[in-house]
Design a protein around this nucleic acid. Sequence first.
RNA 1: GGGUUCGUGGUCUAGUUGGUUAUGACGCGGCCUUUACAAGGCCGAGGCCGGCGGUUCGAAACCGCCCGAACCCA
Length: 873
Amino acid sequence: MTEIPDSYDPDSAEQKWREQWQEMDVYSYEGTKPDYVIDTPPPYPTGNLHIGNALGWCYMDFAARYHRLAGDDVLFPQGWDCHGLPTEVKVEENEDIHRTDVPREDFREMCIEHTESQIDAMRDTMQTLGFSQDWDHEFKTMDDGYWGETQRSFVRMAEEGYVYQDEHPVNWCPRCETAIADAEVETEEGVEGTLYYVTFEGVGNDDIEIATTRPELLAACVSMAVDPDDERYADRVGDTFEVPLFGHEVELIADDDVDGDFGTGAVMICTFGDKQDVDWWAEYDLDLRAVFTEDGHLSEDAGDYAGLTIEDAKEQITEDLHAEGYLNKSEPTTQNVGQCWRCDTPIEILSKEQWFVKVDQEEILDTAQEVEWVPEHMYDRLEEWTEGMEWDWVISRQRVFATPIPAWFCESCGHTHIAEEDDLPAKPTEDGPGIDCPECGSDDWTGETDVMDTWMDSSITPLFVRDWPQADFEPTSLRPQGHDIIRTWAFYTILRTAAIEDEIPWEDILINGMVFGNDGNKMSKSRGNFVQPEEVVEEHSADAFRQAMALGGQPGSDIQFQWKEVTSASRFQTKVWNITRFAGQHLEDDREPLTDPAYRDADRWILSRASHVAAEVADHMDEYRFDAALRELREFVWHDLADDYLELIKGRLYEGRPGERDAARQALFTALSASLRMLSPFAPFLTEEAWHALPSTEGSIHAAEWPDLDMADEESEAAGQLIADTASTVRGWKSEEGMALNADLSKVEVYPDEMPDAAVDTYDLSEAVNAPVHVRAGTPSVELVPVDIDPDHSTIGPEFRDQAGEVVAALESMDPEVVKRQQRLDDEIEVDLGDEEVVVPGDAVDVEEQHQAESGEEVVVLDEDFGTVLVYP
RNA sequence: GGGUUCGUGGUCUAGUUGGUUAUGACGCGGCCUUUACAAGGCCGAGGCCGGCGGUUCGAAACCGCCCGAACCCA
């Protein structure tokens, strides 16, 4: 007998195991080549692991722990995507400096220091929640060892022609003063603006009126356009006009993309107002008039307006247009504006010398199709985004805290030199390339000051965790990812792995949904529906939080955080603990497994059920259906194991002969031990504590194996199910009658609808219901009165096809007594359909009968799904 | 405007290829201290499965339209 504490205290247990797991190496992968590798997405170190992150990490942890149990050598690393603009901004704020106030290296150091503290906070939360990363394989993209590999990937892609440098219009954030990629531009809808109607004077012909929301771009106007089918302008195409205030001349062109319903039907083309302008500019080989500077002012090319901010220029130019008589009218309008996703500043399109990565749509989609998307439809999002890509990926950024682009420019001949792989990691702003210019022999180099987009770092994680390039690349097993970043993270990672290794990055990509507050809205502090994972742990436990995440919905769908799920999980934990405590009272510390236990039907039943459950739960886990897996486990543990099985074997455990008692003990141990192991991915703390409390277990449950039960046995399971159902029926009846559950009864008779093939063993059942139990074939010897007819649609449907409805209706209108008699005597029923008679097989109809006690012995008749139970009080 | 997903008791959720009485949880009402467990057990009420139409002998499921919600994109 083993003493196990009365109650489970999650606070102390979780604290204890958190510490001990750090000492043990159950989560570290030691082999030469792992079987199951998670390409953990490195989060941006915001300092706060919120509940939405936690959902994704729960999924990873379920998968990691399951695969360890299943015998895989699992690599579950944790990385941090450190570089980026928000950190620079934060450090500038904290230190009250501008990044140019201090040397580049010093500023970088400040960023690193800030990032480290942010990481510490998030790592703490991860450990609080019991995530089983292998911390020996932690990586930070700001470490030389990492960003050196980012540079290597850059160098290789440059060699393959994927990376190139060119002048091309790019999205530009005037506040951050850097280029940004399409994915970093967010469209703000319904922004209020003004539509101005402006006259352009004709050069040697009539004037024309255009409509624009951006008069500040007049200086950049290089052409005008109308719809070729627009009759108003049919004979004007090719005419020349003078740009108001600025005086340069532009020509009117015709293009299908002009919306004739907008404004006057005529628009100006500027370099650049939007992407449409870029298209026209390229298509018609127009001039380039760049009037915006990198910091959002007007340039020298804007004449008198040079130096004004974009906003001031708009105001000034409008005023002047009005004063000069060019402005005819203005009206309010709403428009969609592209904004920087980090600072919401409206983006501009500037033509700049930048570094690009070629977007090969076909290659990306071919690769993406080879990845298993869970759920499948998430692939569509990637496809839609990829097919809509218009520009190559601009990867250069004019910032500091990021991976340097390893390139130098020769001051004497202009040659660009990209670093050799052997020279990485390279800091071109500090060191030279170590060679003379291969073109002109000069050693007068200028290092590239541009750095790389952070996605360049985070899109090589599958390569990095696979020890590329030392090891030949093999796809990782799993990438978990939120559906909001498919177009960025998933997209870039697929692009890069395809480009560098011509491979898929991962075999499976599991997309997790968003977590909403319990009012169904996005979590936000202002709505008051915001929940921090730590709060849940404090209130209940990490295990309960994890279960709530698993049960919130099937992976892929958005889930609502529900406190009630956490409550329900806590109750389940209490139940598991109590079962363990009960088992501890009956299991010897030094119990030896029996070689040939004298199992009874109840034992064979629970073992057979456990075998089925282990197989089904494994299937669910393989398919990432964590909700279904945990649901099935709870059902089994709570109802089969606790409610039914434990009750059935109490007789043997307390008063049985040693052989029978020991068989029950063995089956109990087997079923409980299997249950704990299967639950351990979801509730690692509770199951570890219970595992250690349970006699004859060794080591950590997380180093144990998935149950290998080969005890499925349909016959015994049917017999056992009958026993369990009967016990449950009698228990329910006693409760309803207000009787003590251990009250003695004179006799119980069971008449199953389907008699099990094997003889039913009633020993345990008798003990459980406190009465002799007889299982009998046939129908009870109490008076039965047919009262209703219930045709079986699944038999009648296929047999009578389009007549089925008629047959069912006729059957239901028949006298139940007549039907019953025919069924009993002939095993078939003649049904009169009015114009013809058909014969229905006897088993296609259930005649519902009510039991009416005969005079004499008092009997209670309980009708159940599985048969009829007669209770003689 | 385009794409994707989703509408199931008061709330959240399951429902694999169509087939008897639609799953579970939370909440609600009632009863019960029993040799693991009152943080428990047992019982009960509560659903025209968003609406309409179609396919079918039979639809929560399949098809069409409509209404509503969410996300992504333009």
